[in-house]
């Protein structure tokens, strides 16, 4: 998701100035995605340049509110109607790390798996605690954000469990690095592949 669409969605509720937008953004994501005020103003400037929002006259307190334009509304509608492409997401560092661990001499892959599982489990505990504490009806948007993070963490642990089971059965092809230093002490062997 872009901050752009987040701000557009908030302005669809009504006109707001920078600090209000920042507060509303953090509230709706339960502060899991903190924004600095500079990001808010930079994004507003770009949105205004693209004709998606318009700035209104400053208030007496010196605050400049913004409102969404029809073009902004159309852009927002399109965003809600379009699924997020998996290809747009950042590359998954963890899966790449494990794939490399498996083929890098001297790496204890099970330890890599366990270190990650423990850390992810810790995150899952924190998220569960937060969810348990957010039981008021008005907490629903925040609970759904928490649920998303919970499901992702859970999926990661399940995948790590799966990796561990696969590792137990893993018999590297002859001459292939296994993660045990004694099996890969000949670098020319590794270089052959």
């Amino acid at each position: 998701m872009s901050i752009r669409h987040g701000l557009l969605a908030l302005l669809e509720r009504g006109q707001m100035y920078g600090y209000q937008l920042r507060a509303a953004f953090e509230e709706s994501t339960g502060s899991t995605w903190p924004l600095n005020i500079g990001q808010v103003y930079t994004t507003l400037a770009r949105l205004e340049r693209d004709g998606l929002v318009r700035s209104l006259p400053e208030s007496e307190a010196g605050q400049r509110p913004y409102e969404i334009t029809d073009a902004g509304r159309a852009d927002l509608t399109l965003w809600f109607a379009t699924p997020i492409s998996r290809a747009d997401r950042p590359r998954d560092e963890l899966s790449i790390k494990l794939a490399l661990a498996l083929t890098t001499p001297g790496v204890d892959v099970r330890a890599v798996v366990q270190t990650q599982r423990s850390a992810t489990m810790r995150a899952l505990q924190e998220l569960t605690r937060l969810k348990y504490a957010s039981d008021k009806p008005e907490d629903l948007p925040w609970r759904l954000v928490l649920d998303a993070m919970l499901f992702q963490a859970e999926a990661e642990v399940r995948w790590l469990d799966h990796c561990e089971t696969s590792l137990v059965r893993y018999r590297p092809a002859p001459g292939r690095p296994t993660g045990h230093p004694e099996a890969v002490d000949r670098t020319d062997e590794a270089a052959r592949r």
Partner: peptide, 15 residues
Amino acid sequence: THEARHAGWADRVVF
């Protein structure tokens, strides 16, 4: 439990 989601309710998880 074997469910990470359930273990999330614990103060401490041991493996």
